[in-house]
Nucleic acid binder design. Structure first.
Lengths: 205, 205
DNA sequence: AAAGGAACCGACCGGCGGGTCGGTTTAAGG
DNA sequence: CCTTAAACCGACCCGCCGGTCGGTTCCTTT
């Protein structure tokens, strides 16, 4: 089974390095040699494991990006607590570098979706679907929050969910490569203010 | 002076069509022939007027995108009224297609900034600078709002400004090509809620 | 009307990069 | 061992596209 292990390991190395470089330089601005040189692998090795650059990237999306986004932004929503702090916390965690996420996995969605939506509809759809899952989970937890009396009755949960996602994605464009901690902090602060606005007002004694 | 007119007209046609196609397909995914064929012009004509594709795009940024973003999102802020409705209105206007803006000029900034920030720092800087001007004007009008008692004293104006911009840019990724009117409407609604949160509370009688 | 240059033409160049393919190394199975 | 195929190698192919260049047309100027 050594051969089988080797295959797994090589594919995994290719995917990990590929994500790193694609994220850093963009998909279309990265050529395969950039990645292969780093790993001391050849074109032949690459095309032995993947049928095309596109197939390769789809594998990366499904095995790495999707997994990570779900783990960071979707799974944490699966709780019975007050939704707004839970959402805030998941986003804060997702923005925090240096933990499990050396790369800000959620953030890169904005870059890749923008890059692919005009070039490759198929890949764009895979990426959008990841956002979609996040969205439906947000909507669902927000609706429960309404029932549980944490969120004001007038709030449009679908609207709120896409607004949260939009602001999160948009931060990426502002942050760009500069890992500006101040901007991240500010963003979370403003998101809190927005959450204040949709929170159920406490009955004044 | 006929020659001079001709030159102006050709350059203008090139820029207008260029923006249209670049916006539609992305800069790096558009080749010059795509544009030239549409205008029945030749490579020779193009390189007579512009020294490179890059030079061409910079001209478009400065003469079309910048102008339009300023007109739609910056100029309207130059008023003494209550800031929050003014900001909301300018954004609503900017999102409204079919008026002066057949193309959503503010929106395309997200696409182009994302596209260039990993490919061409110079152009990325030009685009970021446009956002920067919007940002400082937002900060300035928000600060005045605080002085005038329209905005709560605890609000961080810089944070608020970048949050507004982030949410606006992020909408683009969600909307993508689909001119989803519902999503735009929802966005404006949620922005209103956020504005409620930073607005100076009316003194209860 | 002749000269000169601006506006424009379009065949061609050359680098880049995804993908191919015949060959070599390595390890599993008999 | 010795066969077989998986894993890997790297020279090569080829389409794409930004940019070039020698030429033609058209307007302006004198």
């Amino acid at each position: 089974m050594d051969k089988n292990l080797k295959k797994r390991e090589t594919m995994h190395r290719l995917c990990a390095k590929g994500l790193e470089i694609f994220h850093e330089k963009g998909y279309y601005n990265t050529n395969l040699d950039d990645i292969l040189k780093d790993l001391s692998l050849s074109k032949g090795a690459f095309y032995h494991h993947f049928k095309s650059k596109e197939d390769y990237f789809i594998t990366i999306v499904q095995n790495l990006i999707q997994q990570k986004v779900y783990a960071l932004l979707v799974e944490p929503l699966n709780t019975q607590e007050n939704p707004l702090p839970v959402i805030l916390d998941s986003i804060e965690q997702a923005l925090e570098p240096g933990k499990a996420n050396e790369i800000a996995y959620g953030f890169m969605l904005n870059d890749f979706i923008t890059e692919f939506s005009k070039r490759n509809k198929e890949i764009a759809t895979y990426l959008r679907d990841i956002l979609k899952v996040w969205e439906v989970n947000l909507v669902s937890i927000l609706k429960r929050g309404k029932v549980d009396g944490h969120i004001a009755r007038h709030v449009d949960c679908e609207g709120a969910a896409s607004y949260i996602i939009a602001s999160y994605l948009g931060m990426r464009t502002l942050l760009a490569e500069s890992t500006n901690r101040q901007l991240k902090y500010n963003y979370v602060q403003q998101l809190k203010l927005y959450f204040n606005a949709i929170e159920e007002r406490q009955v004044v004694a």
